[in-house]
Structures are given as C-alpha cells and as structure tokens.
Amino acid sequence: MSGVFHLRPEVRDALTEIFNIGIGHAAGVLSELVNDEILLTVPELGLTRHTDFAAIAGKLWHEPASIVRQSFQGPFRGDALLIFPARESLELVRILLAEPTPIESMTELEREALLEVGNIILNACLSCIADLLEQEITNALPLYLESDPGSLVNSLIADPDWYVIFIRIDFTVKRHNMRGNILFVLDVPAADAFSAAVEKLVDHFESEP
C-alpha cells in the first residue's frame, strides 16, 4: 500500500495546515470580489480511495452542484475543484455581476463569471501551496461543469487506486448565506509525491532547535 495512507500525525497535521493557508488566501480573494466577509470553518482532511468517495459525497452534497475544475501539473498532478450548490452559485454570480433581477438559469456570461471566480480562487490556493512547498505547479485552463461531485470525481478517475484528498472547509459568504467546498483529487504517485514534499517540510522544522 502507498505511503500516503501511513502519514505520521505531524505530517497529516501539516497537510491540513498547508491547505488551510491556501484556502485562507483564496477566501481573501473571494472576499474582495464579493465585498463581503467569508466565514471559514476549521479544516478537516479526508483521504480516501475514490471508490469510497461516492458515499462521502452523497452525505455532503444533496443536489447537483456548480463546479469549477482546475487541473494542475508539476511534481504532483491532479485536479482542484471548487464546488457550490447550483442555486447558491447563481446567487454568487448575481452579486458579482450586480444583477438585481432574479435569475432562474445560468447564461453564458454568468458561466464565464463563475469560471473566472473559480480560476482566481483555485489559483490563489494552488499558488500558495506551491510556494510553501517550494515547488512549481502549472495550471490548465479551468472548466465549468454542472454535475454531482461524486459522479464527477468518478469520471476523473482512471484507476481504482486513485485517491481523493478531501479538504473540507465550509465557507459562507456572511451576508448572503452562501456556502461551498474545495476538493483536491490526486492519483497514487501524486499523493505520494505530495505527502513526501510535506514530510520534507515537517522534517526541516522538526530538526530545528
């Protein structure tokens, strides 16, 4: 079995902290975009085989979601997903476009707006993680999808041994009661390379006085 399932508690803690920092920066960007405070929960790290992920996804999302998918490459490759319940993504777009009238479905312009928001947020998160680990991560163009997250993750997976690193941070846009999640999907070598990079960082500071 891969090393990623045998993380020392301090490496697991560090993984959570690294994503916490990345998502904290992403929330800063989102806060500026919507001119509102973003409330964040304490992050929770989940690590599971993708075959077990559908059950987890079913408990977290009860309806189709608006998803921005950002594939990344570098020392570890994978996909970062920004997930909003579909109805709440419409609300977000409405705030961004300053559109006062109620909208029932998403137009092309609105899709583009959400894609751009997702691109900015996920880039803020990935750049911060890359800097912390002193690695370079390159991003593909973001894609917008409407799907249920469990099915999407399954469609990204080529191999039953792939992992889903699931960082659950619920964020709420304070005045608009809007929430979302960020999810990272890595394959086996990527998850091992990622945890090795984190282990190196931990060891560096463990060896300090």
Partner: peptide, 24 residues
C-alpha cells in the same frame, strides 16, 4: 497570525490594537 487574510479580520485586529501577520 493567520491565513485568513481578509480585510474585515485585519480591521477587527486593529480595533483591539493587535497586530496582523499573514500566513505563510
């Protein structure tokens, strides 16, 4: 000392005369 780098939080810290250092 926080990764939550939002302006409202910086202001709340300043309001109680507490500094702000952003992570990382």
């Amino acid at each position: 000392l926080t990764a939550n780098v939002q302006a409202p939080l910086r202001k709340r810290a300043a309001d109680i005369a507490v500094g702000f250092i952003d992570k990382p």
